[in-house]
Design a protein around this nucleic acid. Structure first.
Length: 410
RNA sequence: GCCGGGAUGGGGUAGCGGUGUAUCCUUGGGGACUGUGGAUCCCCGGACCCGGGUUCAAAUCCCGGUCCCGGCCCCA
Protein backbone atom coordinates (compact mmCIF):
# COMPACT_ATOMS: atom_id res chain seq x y z
CA UNK A 1 0.00 0.00 0.00
CA UNK A 2 1.35 3.46 -0.82
CA UNK A 3 2.34 5.37 2.25
CA UNK A 4 1.44 8.85 3.31
CA UNK A 5 4.27 11.36 3.08
CA UNK A 6 6.22 12.02 6.25
CA UNK A 7 4.78 14.80 8.37
CA UNK A 8 1.50 14.97 6.45
CA UNK A 9 -1.84 14.00 7.93
CA UNK A 10 -5.05 12.31 6.81
CA UNK A 11 -8.22 13.58 8.38
CA UNK A 12 -11.02 11.05 8.75
CA UNK A 13 -14.63 12.20 9.31
CA UNK A 14 -14.62 11.75 13.09
CA UNK A 15 -11.72 14.21 13.38
CA UNK A 16 -12.41 16.37 10.38
CA UNK A 17 -15.85 17.32 11.69
CA UNK A 18 -14.27 18.59 14.89
CA UNK A 19 -11.62 20.49 12.94
CA UNK A 20 -14.30 22.06 10.79
CA UNK A 21 -16.11 23.28 13.87
CA UNK A 22 -12.95 24.71 15.43
CA UNK A 23 -12.07 26.51 12.21
CA UNK A 24 -15.60 27.85 11.95
CA UNK A 25 -15.28 29.20 15.49
CA UNK A 26 -12.05 30.96 14.58
CA UNK A 27 -13.52 32.48 11.43
CA UNK A 28 -16.68 33.57 13.24
CA UNK A 29 -14.67 35.38 15.89
CA UNK A 30 -12.60 37.16 13.24
CA UNK A 31 -15.75 38.28 11.46
CA UNK A 32 -17.32 39.45 14.72
CA UNK A 33 -14.30 41.68 15.21
CA UNK A 34 -14.75 43.16 11.74
CA UNK A 35 -11.86 41.35 10.09
CA UNK A 36 -12.32 40.43 6.42
CA UNK A 37 -11.12 37.20 4.87
CA UNK A 38 -8.26 37.09 2.38
CA UNK A 39 -6.23 34.29 0.84
CA UNK A 40 -3.03 33.92 -1.11
CA UNK A 41 -1.14 31.45 -3.28
CA UNK A 42 0.12 28.13 -1.96
CA UNK A 43 3.41 28.59 -3.80
CA UNK A 44 5.59 31.67 -3.86
CA UNK A 45 8.99 32.53 -5.25
CA UNK A 46 11.69 31.92 -2.64
CA UNK A 47 12.77 35.52 -3.19
CA UNK A 48 9.76 36.62 -1.17
CA UNK A 49 11.46 35.23 1.93
CA UNK A 50 14.84 36.74 1.16
CA UNK A 51 14.62 39.17 4.08
CA UNK A 52 15.25 36.20 6.32
CA UNK A 53 18.18 35.05 4.20
CA UNK A 54 20.38 32.21 5.30
CA UNK A 55 20.78 28.56 4.47
CA UNK A 56 18.97 27.54 7.63
CA UNK A 57 15.79 29.14 6.31
CA UNK A 58 16.15 27.44 2.95
CA UNK A 59 16.58 24.09 4.68
CA UNK A 60 13.25 24.60 6.43
CA UNK A 61 11.24 25.61 3.40
CA UNK A 62 9.44 23.16 1.16
CA UNK A 63 11.21 24.52 -1.90
CA UNK A 64 11.84 23.14 -5.37
CA UNK A 65 12.53 24.12 -8.95
CA UNK A 66 9.40 24.46 -11.07
CA UNK A 67 9.24 23.40 -14.73
CA UNK A 68 10.24 26.87 -15.84
CA UNK A 69 13.40 26.74 -13.75
CA UNK A 70 12.08 29.09 -11.07
CA UNK A 71 13.09 28.50 -7.48
CA UNK A 72 9.74 28.30 -5.67
CA UNK A 73 8.46 27.12 -2.31
CA UNK A 74 5.25 26.03 -0.69
CA UNK A 75 4.40 28.98 1.52
CA UNK A 76 5.89 28.57 5.02
CA UNK A 77 3.98 31.49 6.56
CA UNK A 78 1.50 34.15 5.53
CA UNK A 79 3.05 37.45 6.53
CA UNK A 80 5.33 37.98 3.49
CA UNK A 81 2.42 37.24 1.15
CA UNK A 82 0.25 39.63 3.11
CA UNK A 83 2.92 42.32 2.93
CA UNK A 84 3.19 41.84 -0.82
CA UNK A 85 -0.59 42.04 -1.24
CA UNK A 86 -0.76 45.27 0.72
CA UNK A 87 2.33 46.83 -0.85
CA UNK A 88 0.98 46.33 -4.36
CA UNK A 89 -2.38 48.02 -3.78
CA UNK A 90 -2.12 51.73 -3.11
CA UNK A 91 -5.87 52.26 -3.12
CA UNK A 92 -6.64 50.28 0.03
CA UNK A 93 -8.25 52.31 2.78
CA UNK A 94 -6.36 51.93 6.05
CA UNK A 95 -6.45 50.53 8.57
CA UNK A 96 -7.11 47.08 7.16
CA UNK A 97 -8.28 44.21 9.32
CA UNK A 98 -7.67 40.98 7.47
CA UNK A 99 -7.63 37.31 8.35
CA UNK A 100 -6.92 34.06 6.59
CA UNK A 101 -7.07 30.41 7.54
CA UNK A 102 -4.94 28.38 5.20
CA UNK A 103 -2.45 25.56 4.87
CA UNK A 104 1.26 26.21 5.23
CA UNK A 105 4.30 23.99 4.84
CA UNK A 106 7.67 23.63 6.49
CA UNK A 107 10.25 20.99 5.74
CA UNK A 108 11.20 19.97 9.26
CA UNK A 109 11.30 16.91 11.46
CA UNK A 110 7.78 16.21 12.69
CA UNK A 111 7.25 16.11 16.44
CA UNK A 112 4.59 16.91 18.99
CA UNK A 113 2.54 19.86 17.77
CA UNK A 114 4.53 20.18 14.58
CA UNK A 115 3.95 18.75 11.12
CA UNK A 116 5.21 19.46 7.65
CA UNK A 117 1.78 20.62 6.59
CA UNK A 118 -0.43 22.55 8.96
CA UNK A 119 -3.27 25.01 9.10
CA UNK A 120 -2.72 28.45 10.48
CA UNK A 121 -5.05 31.30 11.25
CA UNK A 122 -3.52 34.71 10.63
CA UNK A 123 -5.18 37.94 11.69
CA UNK A 124 -3.56 41.32 11.15
CA UNK A 125 -4.30 45.00 11.36
CA UNK A 126 -2.39 47.04 8.81
CA UNK A 127 -2.04 50.78 8.67
CA UNK A 128 -2.28 51.75 12.31
CA UNK A 129 0.68 52.26 14.61
CA UNK A 130 -1.62 52.91 17.56
CA UNK A 131 -1.39 50.67 20.59
CA UNK A 132 -5.14 50.23 20.22
CA UNK A 133 -4.50 48.13 17.15
CA UNK A 134 -2.27 45.89 19.27
CA UNK A 135 -5.04 45.63 21.84
CA UNK A 136 -7.69 44.80 19.26
CA UNK A 137 -5.60 41.98 17.79
CA UNK A 138 -4.93 40.59 21.24
CA UNK A 139 -8.61 40.77 22.15
CA UNK A 140 -9.41 38.75 19.06
CA UNK A 141 -6.89 36.09 20.05
CA UNK A 142 -8.26 36.02 23.58
CA UNK A 143 -11.84 35.75 22.33
CA UNK A 144 -10.94 32.84 20.09
CA UNK A 145 -9.41 31.02 23.06
CA UNK A 146 -12.51 31.72 25.08
CA UNK A 147 -14.96 30.51 22.47
CA UNK A 148 -12.92 27.34 22.00
CA UNK A 149 -13.47 26.70 25.70
CA UNK A 150 -9.83 27.34 26.53
CA UNK A 151 -10.24 30.72 28.20
CA UNK A 152 -9.24 29.47 31.64
CA UNK A 153 -6.59 27.09 30.34
CA UNK A 154 -4.25 29.57 28.69
CA UNK A 155 -2.44 32.83 29.26
CA UNK A 156 -1.08 35.57 27.09
CA UNK A 157 2.57 36.44 27.56
CA UNK A 158 3.69 39.76 26.20
CA UNK A 159 6.88 41.71 25.74
CA UNK A 160 8.33 44.33 23.46
CA UNK A 161 11.38 44.32 21.23
CA UNK A 162 11.78 48.07 21.58
CA UNK A 163 11.52 47.82 25.36
CA UNK A 164 14.24 45.19 25.24
CA UNK A 165 16.33 47.64 23.22
CA UNK A 166 15.91 50.17 26.02
CA UNK A 167 17.06 47.59 28.53
CA UNK A 168 20.05 46.72 26.38
CA UNK A 169 21.05 50.39 26.30
CA UNK A 170 20.38 50.80 30.01
CA UNK A 171 22.63 47.87 30.89
CA UNK A 172 25.20 48.62 28.18
CA UNK A 173 24.94 45.19 26.66
CA UNK A 174 26.88 44.80 23.43
CA UNK A 175 26.00 41.25 22.51
CA UNK A 176 22.35 41.72 21.79
CA UNK A 177 21.97 38.39 19.99
CA UNK A 178 23.37 36.55 22.98
CA UNK A 179 20.80 38.19 25.23
CA UNK A 180 17.97 37.27 22.86
CA UNK A 181 19.21 33.71 22.73
CA UNK A 182 19.56 33.49 26.49
CA UNK A 183 16.07 34.83 27.14
CA UNK A 184 14.50 32.61 24.53
CA UNK A 185 16.28 29.49 25.84
CA UNK A 186 16.14 30.29 29.54
CA UNK A 187 13.90 27.40 30.59
CA UNK A 188 15.68 24.92 28.30
CA UNK A 189 19.39 25.35 28.82
CA UNK A 190 21.49 24.10 31.70
CA UNK A 191 23.15 26.13 34.46
CA UNK A 192 26.62 25.89 33.00
CA UNK A 193 25.56 27.30 29.64
CA UNK A 194 23.67 30.02 31.45
CA UNK A 195 26.76 31.03 33.43
CA UNK A 196 28.87 31.12 30.29
CA UNK A 197 26.38 33.19 28.34
CA UNK A 198 25.90 35.64 31.20
CA UNK A 199 29.67 36.00 31.30
CA UNK A 200 29.66 36.86 27.61
CA UNK A 201 27.10 39.57 28.18
CA UNK A 202 29.27 41.26 30.77
CA UNK A 203 26.46 41.84 33.25
CA UNK A 204 25.85 40.43 36.70
CA UNK A 205 23.67 37.40 37.25
CA UNK A 206 21.39 39.54 39.40
CA UNK A 207 20.79 41.99 36.56
CA UNK A 208 20.03 39.18 34.15
CA UNK A 209 17.63 37.64 36.64
CA UNK A 210 15.85 40.96 37.00
CA UNK A 211 15.19 40.77 33.25
CA UNK A 212 13.98 37.18 33.53
CA UNK A 213 11.59 38.01 36.36
CA UNK A 214 10.66 41.37 34.82
CA UNK A 215 11.64 43.28 37.95
CA UNK A 216 13.97 45.44 35.93
CA UNK A 217 11.06 47.52 34.69
CA UNK A 218 10.80 49.13 38.12
CA UNK A 219 14.12 50.88 37.67
CA UNK A 220 13.55 51.92 34.08
CA UNK A 221 11.95 54.95 32.47
CA UNK A 222 10.85 54.21 28.93
CA UNK A 223 8.04 55.25 26.62
CA UNK A 224 8.10 51.73 25.23
CA UNK A 225 7.43 50.41 28.70
CA UNK A 226 4.55 52.84 29.15
CA UNK A 227 3.10 51.70 25.86
CA UNK A 228 3.31 48.05 26.85
CA UNK A 229 1.68 48.69 30.23
CA UNK A 230 -1.13 50.57 28.53
CA UNK A 231 -1.71 47.65 26.17
CA UNK A 232 -1.92 45.30 29.13
CA UNK A 233 -4.32 47.59 30.98
CA UNK A 234 -6.65 47.87 28.03
CA UNK A 235 -6.49 44.16 27.37
CA UNK A 236 -7.63 43.56 30.93
CA UNK A 237 -10.38 46.10 30.40
CA UNK A 238 -11.83 43.92 27.63
CA UNK A 239 -11.16 40.83 29.71
CA UNK A 240 -10.80 37.49 27.95
CA UNK A 241 -7.76 35.59 29.20
CA UNK A 242 -4.91 36.17 31.62
CA UNK A 243 -2.08 38.39 30.51
CA UNK A 244 1.41 38.73 31.93
CA UNK A 245 4.56 40.58 31.10
CA UNK A 246 7.36 38.20 30.17
CA UNK A 247 10.58 39.64 28.85
CA UNK A 248 11.66 36.14 27.84
CA UNK A 249 9.29 36.35 24.88
CA UNK A 250 11.57 37.22 22.00
CA UNK A 251 10.28 35.37 18.91
CA UNK A 252 12.65 34.42 16.17
CA UNK A 253 11.41 36.57 13.38
CA UNK A 254 13.63 39.40 12.28
CA UNK A 255 10.71 41.57 11.24
CA UNK A 256 9.13 42.25 14.63
CA UNK A 257 9.70 45.84 15.74
CA UNK A 258 8.00 46.32 19.10
CA UNK A 259 5.18 44.33 20.70
CA UNK A 260 5.70 40.56 20.72
CA UNK A 261 3.41 38.03 22.34
CA UNK A 262 2.52 34.36 22.65
CA UNK A 263 -0.31 32.34 24.14
CA UNK A 264 0.67 29.35 26.27
CA UNK A 265 -1.09 26.65 28.22
CA UNK A 266 -0.96 27.57 31.90
CA UNK A 267 1.64 24.95 32.81
CA UNK A 268 3.73 25.79 29.74
CA UNK A 269 3.99 22.11 28.96
CA UNK A 270 3.28 22.53 25.26
CA UNK A 271 4.53 24.80 22.54
CA UNK A 272 3.16 28.28 22.07
CA UNK A 273 -0.43 28.12 20.84
CA UNK A 274 -0.30 31.48 19.13
CA UNK A 275 2.46 33.94 18.40
CA UNK A 276 2.68 37.38 16.90
CA UNK A 277 3.65 40.96 17.25
CA UNK A 278 4.11 44.31 15.61
CA UNK A 279 6.02 44.56 12.34
CA UNK A 280 6.08 48.12 11.12
CA UNK A 281 8.66 47.91 8.36
CA UNK A 282 8.26 44.95 6.05
CA UNK A 283 5.67 46.54 3.77
CA UNK A 284 7.84 49.56 3.09
CA UNK A 285 10.75 47.17 2.61
CA UNK A 286 8.74 45.66 -0.23
CA UNK A 287 8.50 49.11 -1.80
CA UNK A 288 5.05 49.78 -0.46
CA UNK A 289 4.09 52.88 1.48
CA UNK A 290 5.02 52.86 5.14
CA UNK A 291 2.37 50.64 6.70
CA UNK A 292 2.73 49.74 10.34
CA UNK A 293 1.14 46.39 11.17
CA UNK A 294 0.38 44.04 14.01
CA UNK A 295 -0.94 40.50 13.90
CA UNK A 296 -0.66 36.91 14.95
CA UNK A 297 -0.56 33.37 13.63
CA UNK A 298 -2.24 30.42 15.31
CA UNK A 299 -1.50 26.89 14.13
CA UNK A 300 -3.93 24.01 14.36
CA UNK A 301 -1.63 21.40 15.89
CA UNK A 302 -1.02 22.79 19.37
CA UNK A 303 -4.65 23.88 19.69
CA UNK A 304 -5.63 20.31 18.88
CA UNK A 305 -3.25 18.89 21.49
CA UNK A 306 -4.60 21.23 24.14
CA UNK A 307 -8.26 20.56 23.31
CA UNK A 308 -7.55 16.84 23.52
CA UNK A 309 -5.80 17.21 26.84
CA UNK A 310 -8.71 19.20 28.22
CA UNK A 311 -11.26 16.67 27.00
CA UNK A 312 -12.81 19.13 24.55
CA UNK A 313 -12.18 17.01 21.47
CA UNK A 314 -15.28 14.94 20.89
CA UNK A 315 -17.37 13.81 17.95
CA UNK A 316 -19.57 16.21 16.10
CA UNK A 317 -21.54 13.92 13.81
CA UNK A 318 -24.59 15.96 12.87
CA UNK A 319 -26.57 13.20 11.17
CA UNK A 320 -29.85 12.22 12.81
CA UNK A 321 -32.12 10.80 10.12
CA UNK A 322 -31.70 7.69 8.00
CA UNK A 323 -34.28 6.55 5.48
CA UNK A 324 -34.72 2.78 5.34
CA UNK A 325 -36.47 1.29 2.37
CA UNK A 326 -38.73 -1.75 2.48
CA UNK A 327 -39.63 -2.28 -1.18
CA UNK A 328 -39.65 -0.77 -4.67
CA UNK A 329 -42.59 1.53 -3.95
CA UNK A 330 -40.74 2.76 -0.89
CA UNK A 331 -37.66 3.43 -3.00
CA UNK A 332 -39.58 5.68 -5.37
CA UNK A 333 -41.34 7.40 -2.49
CA UNK A 334 -37.98 8.00 -0.78
CA UNK A 335 -36.86 10.45 -3.46
CA UNK A 336 -39.79 12.71 -2.65
CA UNK A 337 -39.47 12.32 1.11
CA UNK A 338 -35.71 12.86 1.23
CA UNK A 339 -35.99 15.91 -0.98
CA UNK A 340 -38.64 17.44 1.28
CA UNK A 341 -36.53 16.73 4.36
CA UNK A 342 -33.44 18.27 2.82
CA UNK A 343 -35.26 21.33 1.56
CA UNK A 344 -36.36 21.83 5.15
CA UNK A 345 -32.80 21.74 6.36
CA UNK A 346 -32.88 18.25 7.84
CA UNK A 347 -29.65 16.34 7.31
CA UNK A 348 -30.95 13.17 5.69
CA UNK A 349 -29.09 10.01 4.77
CA UNK A 350 -30.77 7.29 2.75
CA UNK A 351 -30.14 3.61 2.20
CA UNK A 352 -28.06 3.07 -0.93
CA UNK A 353 -27.74 -0.72 -0.69
CA UNK A 354 -29.84 -3.75 -1.60
CA UNK A 355 -29.88 -4.91 2.03
CA UNK A 356 -33.06 -6.12 3.63
CA UNK A 357 -34.90 -3.86 6.04
CA UNK A 358 -33.47 -5.49 9.15
CA UNK A 359 -29.94 -4.86 7.97
CA UNK A 360 -30.74 -1.26 7.10
CA UNK A 361 -32.06 -0.53 10.56
CA UNK A 362 -29.14 -2.32 12.13
CA UNK A 363 -26.81 -0.13 10.07
CA UNK A 364 -28.63 3.07 11.04
CA UNK A 365 -28.52 2.14 14.71
CA UNK A 366 -24.85 1.21 14.58
CA UNK A 367 -23.97 4.44 12.82
CA UNK A 368 -25.59 6.36 15.66
CA UNK A 369 -28.59 7.81 13.85
CA UNK A 370 -31.36 8.91 16.20
CA UNK A 371 -34.20 8.22 13.79
CA UNK A 372 -34.92 5.85 10.98
CA UNK A 373 -37.68 6.67 8.54
CA UNK A 374 -39.22 3.54 7.05
CA UNK A 375 -40.78 3.74 3.62
CA UNK A 376 -42.61 1.02 1.74
CA UNK A 377 -45.83 0.35 -0.07
CA UNK A 378 -47.84 0.92 3.15
CA UNK A 379 -46.47 4.39 3.73
CA UNK A 380 -46.74 5.28 0.08
CA UNK A 381 -50.44 4.40 -0.20
CA UNK A 382 -51.28 5.99 3.17
CA UNK A 383 -49.30 9.11 2.21
CA UNK A 384 -47.47 9.06 5.52
CA UNK A 385 -44.12 7.93 6.93
CA UNK A 386 -43.12 5.54 9.65
CA UNK A 387 -40.58 7.02 12.01
CA UNK A 388 -38.64 4.91 14.46
CA UNK A 389 -36.66 6.24 17.40
CA UNK A 390 -33.56 4.08 17.36
CA UNK A 391 -32.65 4.88 20.92
CA UNK A 392 -35.97 4.15 22.63
CA UNK A 393 -37.34 1.73 20.03
CA UNK A 394 -40.61 3.63 19.79
CA UNK A 395 -42.23 3.93 16.39
CA UNK A 396 -44.99 6.11 15.00
CA UNK A 397 -46.83 6.78 11.76
CA UNK A 398 -47.36 10.41 10.84
CA UNK A 399 -47.81 12.69 7.89
CA UNK A 400 -44.77 14.03 6.11
CA UNK A 401 -45.46 17.52 7.47
CA UNK A 402 -45.62 16.22 11.03
CA UNK A 403 -42.41 14.30 10.49
CA UNK A 404 -40.65 17.36 9.15
CA UNK A 405 -41.75 19.37 12.17
CA UNK A 406 -40.66 16.67 14.58
CA UNK A 407 -37.26 16.24 12.97
CA UNK A 408 -36.61 19.97 12.64
CA UNK A 409 -37.19 20.44 16.33
CA UNK A 410 -35.20 17.51 17.58
C1' G B 1 20.20 17.68 9.38
C1' C B 2 21.20 15.09 14.39
C1' C B 3 19.70 11.79 18.75
C1' G B 4 16.46 8.17 21.53
C1' G B 5 12.34 4.53 21.36
C1' G B 6 9.16 1.85 18.20
C1' A B 7 6.66 -0.96 13.74
C1' U B 8 2.52 -8.19 13.74
C1' G B 9 -4.97 -8.00 9.82
C1' G B 10 -8.81 -1.56 9.69
C1' G B 11 -7.90 -0.75 15.45
C1' G B 12 -5.72 -3.03 19.98
C1' U B 13 -2.45 -7.22 20.91
C1' A B 14 0.28 -12.45 21.99
C1' G B 15 4.55 -14.77 20.15
C1' C B 16 10.87 -12.92 20.65
C1' G B 17 15.28 -18.92 16.52
C1' G B 18 12.06 -24.86 15.05
C1' U B 19 6.12 -26.63 18.25
C1' G B 20 2.53 -22.14 12.86
C1' U B 21 -2.52 -23.35 8.23
C1' A B 22 0.82 -16.80 13.49
C1' U B 23 -2.78 -15.93 19.26
C1' C B 24 -6.79 -13.37 21.37
C1' C B 25 -10.21 -9.19 21.33
C1' U B 26 -12.42 -5.83 18.20
C1' U B 27 -13.87 -4.08 13.49
C1' G B 28 -15.72 -5.19 8.33
C1' G B 29 -18.87 -8.38 4.77
C1' G B 30 -22.65 -12.25 4.34
C1' G B 31 -26.40 -15.61 6.31
C1' A B 32 -30.08 -17.66 9.94
C1' C B 33 -34.27 -13.03 9.20
C1' U B 34 -38.21 -10.86 1.55
C1' G B 35 -41.52 -4.88 6.70
C1' U B 36 -38.12 -3.74 11.76
C1' G B 37 -32.00 -3.44 15.88
C1' G B 38 -26.72 -3.23 18.36
C1' A B 39 -28.24 -9.78 21.18
C1' U B 40 -27.18 -14.99 19.69
C1' C B 41 -25.31 -18.60 16.36
C1' C B 42 -22.85 -19.86 11.71
C1' C B 43 -19.74 -18.60 7.49
C1' C B 44 -16.18 -15.31 5.05
C1' G B 45 -12.26 -11.52 4.42
C1' G B 46 -7.91 -9.40 6.52
C1' A B 47 -1.13 -8.86 9.23
C1' C B 48 4.75 -10.35 10.64
C1' C B 49 7.15 -2.27 7.33
C1' C B 50 10.82 -2.85 2.96
C1' G B 51 15.60 -4.81 1.25
C1' G B 52 19.92 -7.47 2.25
C1' G B 53 22.61 -10.85 5.61
C1' U B 54 23.53 -14.88 9.55
C1' U B 55 21.41 -19.95 10.06
C1' C B 56 19.76 -26.53 8.34
C1' A B 57 15.67 -23.11 10.01
C1' A B 58 14.00 -15.86 10.85
C1' A B 59 7.92 -12.50 12.87
C1' U B 60 12.02 -13.65 16.27
C1' C B 61 19.19 -12.33 15.54
C1' C B 62 22.43 -8.56 12.57
C1' C B 63 22.94 -4.37 8.92
C1' G B 64 20.74 -0.60 5.79
C1' G B 65 16.37 2.04 4.47
C1' U B 66 11.23 3.76 5.19
C1' C B 67 7.52 5.34 8.35
C1' C B 68 5.55 6.42 13.44
C1' C B 69 6.25 8.62 18.51
C1' G B 70 9.30 11.90 21.18
C1' G B 71 13.57 15.20 21.75
C1' C B 72 17.59 18.57 19.62
C1' C B 73 18.43 22.41 15.95
C1' C B 74 15.05 25.93 14.30
C1' C B 75 10.55 28.06 15.07
C1' A B 76 7.11 31.30 10.62
Amino acid sequence: MPERLRGFRDFYPEDQEIRREIFDTMRDECRKFGFREVDGPSIESVDLYAHKSGEEIMAQMFNFMDKGGREVTLVPEFTPTLARMVASRKDLIKPLKWYTLAKFWRYEEPQSGRFREFYQLNADILGSDSLHADVEVLNLAGSIMKSLGLGSKVKLKISSRSLLEDIIKYLNIEKKDTLYYLLDRWVKINEKDKENLIGELGISKEKLESIITGKIINELKSSNLDRLMKIMDEFNEYGTIKIELDLKIVRGLAYYTSTVFEIWDLEEKMRAIMGGGRYDNIISQMNGDYTPAVGFGMGDAVVENLLKREGLWYEKDKRRVFISIADDKGRKYSYYVSKMFRENGIITDVNVTERNLGKQIEYAAKMGFKYSIILGEREFSNKNVSIRDLITGEQWSMSLEEAINKLKNS
